[in-house]
Design a protein around this nucleic acid. Structure first.
Lengths: 334, 334
DNA sequence: CCTAAAAATGTAAACAATTACATTTTGATT
DNA sequence: AATCAAAATGTAATTGTTTACATTTTTAGG
């Protein structure tokens, strides 16, 4: 493999000039640039990126920390990250943490050791290992964001989204509304529950706490939660699920217990994943701009890494209520 | 940040000894090791990985080339890759190519410039840019594998799987069987069609070529293909789809045209993604060990990178026919 | 044509590890 | 105690770039 020295000899210039031709061509005269380019072509020279990274202490690599890459919503966010990263000249290291803090630690370390320039965190906490050092740790928090954090955040207005969904359900005359939410510690969960409560309060409906149950965003947990709800002494006529997978699980359970969706029970989701539209019945849900989350996060991380001032440190992206056929007016006889 | 030199001074040994303490501790005496460890603790030293990578010309990083990370089957494979990579001390660079050869080129280049040590290719062709250089390019090809390639491959016996699925359909007395396959150029498609043909031939059933239609693995394409099949002069009583998404699209279409699945028309999938079990009706499909594909691929790539002889260069992983309720015996009156 | 400023180019020192080779220390055997 | 091989340690070169600083060349205005 040819080195910058070989090129400089053939071109009859110094290594500095070759380096400049590559990284700041406007500082090099037209004539010299051509000589260098010829030498590069002749030698088939490619800069040794490892040497460059070492010298500049930058890896042009970011890591994305995701609780589970097999989640279809997350994988869309990651797709958005990857596309924008590539445009900006960054490579994306995948950090599937499976919720393990030790894994996060490994990845946070990569930033400390300059193997990566920054982190995009999709989970609702400071990555383990990134908290120790108080100095600027280049990171942005997307989707499920910590409250009152120094990290820049990009998220949905989950309070408003859950409110809108709840209002839709209320407009269908439902009063006994169940919730299948995600992990309690997460901001997403808390915000959406808050939105739900506000909507109920506005409509003067009392909240039945026994109809608020927890899932883990998996289909199975949605199914299990729906089972529990239906076994409740006063089962809900509508179930608000905090993602589409749990809604799909819930629909499956409701049906297999002999009820009809939406005739007997309305079910709604969150995220609008690809499958939502093709469920039976098609799922009423909140659509989120998943790829935009990723893309915007990468853009923001770029600014953080390069110490460009971030204008909007707490960004909110728009959602859209998609009314399909999994929600319907309350049956008269109830 | 402390360097190896700082540590060596504090420990009162040479840099070589510090380096050895880290990478080959058994070459260092007990006493010295302790001194060095103390110095490391005192200085909070972490080796500069960028310098190490540069010097050793290894990045301890691999790239995975995937046509679309939002595909749930692929994301499971990637999860398997990531888990095993982490165990082996490798980081995983995500290369979502979106089918663009230029993107592949970028990533192949990373291997050429030692930014990555190898590639796992999930698509059915030699990555653009990896073909030029004839010398050993560390790569393994998983899932959709090229025929007669020098690359090590890990795949399903797709002929056998499609045969088994077809035999299942035939055992239900179907004779008019439609196929919704993937891109024609891919080995997966060709193999599965072959398996289908063999099963039909064994059962003395003639193939109706007009019932073999192409999709692109998306839900929408499955839906569209099913529409076309049903508009056929002699529509099929069963549809064999080459992935679960297309099957889900097909089921949706069949139902919305007023037919029942499986009563009027049987539909089967491939992959056994999470949603398959929770469809309505639950999907008969071929389950594949997605995570194993990833894990095995990483293990194999490790051998290739480290020039350990690979025993089984063309590995096949087992599948399992999952019979659920989307396939049923042919109606009597047909 | 002269001169000063600006532009272009060159020199050589980093960067922080690994490792080939040289040297010293250790320990077993006589 | 002497010898020698093996083990442990040290010295210093090496890796390929970038870049601060020094030097040379070009340009423009008088």
């Amino acid at each position: 493999m040819a080195t910058i020295r070989d090129v400089s000899k053939i071109a009859g210039v110094s290594v500095a000039t070759v380096s400049r031709t590559l990284s700041m061509p406007d500082k090099v005269s037209q004539k010299t640039r051509e000589k260098v380019q010829n030498a590069i072509d002749k030698t088939n020279y490619r800069p040794n990126i490892l040497a460059r990274n070492f010298r500049t202490r930058k890896a042009s690599t970011i890591v994305v920390l995701v609780p589970d890459i097999a989640n279809p919503f997350f994988s869309r966010v990651i797709r958005g990250i990857e596309q924008t990263a590539q445009k900006l000249g960054y490579a994306v290291l995948l950090g599937d943490t499976q919720g393990l803090r030790e894994r996060e630690y490994t990845y946070a370390n990569m930033v400390k050791t300059s193997q990566a320039d920054g982190i995009i965190q999709l989970d609702c906490h400071v990555p383990f290992g990134a908290d120790e050092e108080e100095d600027i740790f280049p990171i942005v928090n997307v989707c499920d964001c910590i409250r009152n954090t120094a990290m820049p955040t990009i998220q949905l207005d989950n309070v408003a989204a859950a409110m809108e969904m709840t209002e839709h359900i209320i407009s269908l005359k439902h009063k006994n509304i169940g919730i299948i939410h995600g992990p309690k510690e997460s901001t997403i969960t808390m915000d959406r529950i808050k939105g739900f409560e506000i909507a109920l309060k506005n409509a003067d409906i009392d909240i039945d706490r026994s109809l608020v149950v927890e899932g883990d965003y998996s289909i199975k947990s949605g199914s299990q939660a729906a089972y529990n709800l239906l076994k409740n002494p006063s089962p809900p006529s509508a179930m608000l699920c905090f993602n589409d997978e749990m809604a799909i699980g819930a629909i499956h359970q409701v049906k297999s217990m002999g009820f009809s969706v939406p005739h007997d029970i309305s079910v709604s989701g969150f995220d609008d994943i690809n499958f939502a539209e093709f469920c039976d019945p098609p799922l009423t849900t909140i659509s989120q701009p998943a790829e935009d989350f990723g893309s915007k996060a990468m853009l923001m991380l770029y600014d953080v890494i390069n110490e460009i001032e971030v204008k909007n440190k707490n960004m909110f992206l728009p959602f859209k209520l998609k009314i399909r056929n999994s929600t319907a007016p309350l049956k008269k006889d109830e």
